[in-house]
Computed example of a mutant assay.
Amino acid sequence: MGIDVESVMRGSRRALLRRRLIGGGGALASIVVIVAAVVLVVSMVSAGGDDVGPGDHSKDKSRLDPNSTYTWENEDNGKANKVTTAYSRALWAYLTEHFPGVKAFVQNESGHMVPVASRQAEHVFLMRTTENLYKGVDDTELMEHPDKYKPIATRTVLDMFENYGKGGDAHWSTCCGTLVKFPGAKHKNGFEIQVMPRGSYTKRTHDALDLASCNGSSIGQERTTCHAEDATGPHGEDVQNITKTAKDDVDGTLHTFAYSTVMYRKDGSAVLISLSSDTDPGANAERALSFKDMIGVASALPKGDITS
């Protein structure tokens, strides 16, 4: 039987992204989360297949079990449209204007990371994709046995994809996040942007649906902690700036492995921007962007329904 090289590359590429960026953002953080009981929010599909309408909290019926673990897993099924193209162009127009010389790094067919200093939106871009919430299973088990488990909820988000290999179409792109070197930075850093539709998340509930929380989460044998500080966006938006730390399971050293900003936009959607260590939670992330910088990036993105 012949080897499907494309499938192998997609699988290894996705594993690399998950390994190097885990904890950096929502889709990347398919970390196991021990949560408090909370309403499973609107704009999701429940385990019974009921489509719960956006913004209607009276239909919140599915609840998370406080004694169970939950994992978000991205299906890596990106689809582009006019909305996602507008987001990608706006993102790179802002980054290249405000951070001249910014470079994205993508993996080529040989597995080497190569810089992209121009036309970045053709190589690193946002697409619509599906995230599934699983109960009682961790991300490693999901990767090894993807057909064994059924999600209890599903949401459509925008996430960051990158072309690799031949490039040029969705078959040769993968989620989630990329490596970026910002001007003045010493190192490449993991970088991801997600856009969540209205009703697909909660705020300040400290559980698997809270974009600013990793309360009670674990990555391998390392314990992670999220410290969130409230801030305000340029147009009065509710903002949370998050510092993520993990204690090394070998020497106990505390590492700040990721910084994130969540902007809750006035149309009910949310933008999550994450900057993380290039390796894993055992290394410190470089402050290549300040929280003010990340708020600026979030503010530059278009508005409008991302689910249509």
Results as ranks from 00 to 15, higher is better:
residue 99 F to W: 00
residue 100 P to H: 07
residue 100 P to V: 11
residue 100 P to T: 11
residue 100 P to Y: 05
residue 100 P to N: 08
residue 101 G to Y: 10
residue 101 G to P: 03
residue 101 G to T: 05
residue 102 V to E: 00
residue 103 K to S: 15
residue 103 K to G: 03
residue 103 K to L: 12
residue 104 A to I: 02
residue 104 A to R: 05
residue 106 V to A: 06
residue 106 V to F: 10
residue 106 V to N: 04
residue 106 V to E: 03
residue 107 Q to T: 14
residue 107 Q to L: 10
residue 107 Q to N: 10
residue 107 Q to Y: 07
residue 108 N to G: 15
residue 109 E to Y: 09
residue 109 E to Q: 15
residue 109 E to F: 13
residue 110 S to W: 11
residue 111 G to S: 11
residue 112 H to R: 15
residue 112 H to V: 15
residue 112 H to T: 14
residue 113 M to A: 14
residue 113 M to P: 04
residue 114 V to R: 14
residue 114 V to S: 06
residue 115 P to V: 12
residue 115 P to W: 10
residue 115 P to K: 10
residue 115 P to T: 03
residue 115 P to L: 11
residue 115 P to Q: 12
residue 116 V to G: 01
residue 116 V to S: 06
residue 117 A to I: 06
residue 117 A to Y: 05
residue 117 A to K: 07
residue 118 S to C: 05
residue 119 R to T: 05
residue 119 R to P: 01
residue 119 R to V: 04
residue 120 Q to N: 08
residue 120 Q to M: 14
residue 121 A to S: 13
residue 121 A to H: 14
residue 121 A to D: 15
residue 121 A to I: 07
residue 121 A to L: 09
residue 122 E to A: 11
residue 122 E to P: 02
residue 123 H to R: 11
residue 124 V to A: 01
residue 125 F to I: 02
residue 125 F to S: 00
residue 126 L to E: 03
residue 126 L to K: 02
residue 127 M to D: 01
residue 127 M to H: 04
residue 128 R to W: 02
residue 128 R to T: 03
residue 128 R to I: 01
residue 129 T to K: 00
residue 129 T to C: 00
residue 129 T to A: 00
residue 130 T to C: 12
residue 130 T to G: 04
residue 130 T to S: 13
residue 130 T to W: 07
residue 131 E to C: 02
residue 132 N to K: 13
residue 132 N to A: 11
residue 133 L to C: 07
residue 135 K to C: 08
residue 137 V to R: 02
residue 137 V to N: 06
residue 137 V to K: 03
residue 139 D to G: 06
residue 139 D to V: 15
residue 139 D to Q: 03
residue 139 D to T: 14
residue 139 D to H: 08
residue 140 T to C: 10
residue 140 T to A: 13
residue 140 T to M: 14
residue 140 T to P: 05
residue 141 E to G: 01
residue 142 L to N: 08
residue 142 L to R: 08
residue 142 L to P: 02
residue 142 L to W: 05
residue 142 L to A: 08
residue 142 L to D: 08
residue 143 M to W: 10
residue 144 E to A: 15
residue 144 E to W: 13
residue 145 H to F: 09
residue 146 P to W: 03
residue 146 P to N: 09
residue 146 P to G: 09
residue 147 D to F: 09
residue 147 D to M: 12
residue 147 D to A: 11
residue 148 K to W: 06
residue 148 K to T: 14
residue 148 K to D: 09
residue 150 K to L: 15
residue 150 K to R: 15
residue 151 P to A: 05
residue 152 I to W: 07
residue 152 I to A: 04
residue 152 I to M: 13
residue 152 I to K: 07
residue 154 T to Y: 08
residue 154 T to F: 12
residue 155 R to P: 01
residue 155 R to I: 09
residue 156 T to H: 07
residue 156 T to R: 02
residue 156 T to L: 07
residue 157 V to E: 02
residue 157 V to P: 06
residue 158 L to N: 00
residue 160 M to G: 00
residue 161 F to Q: 00
residue 161 F to A: 01
residue 161 F to P: 00
residue 162 E to S: 09
residue 162 E to I: 10
residue 162 E to A: 08
residue 162 E to G: 09
residue 162 E to K: 09
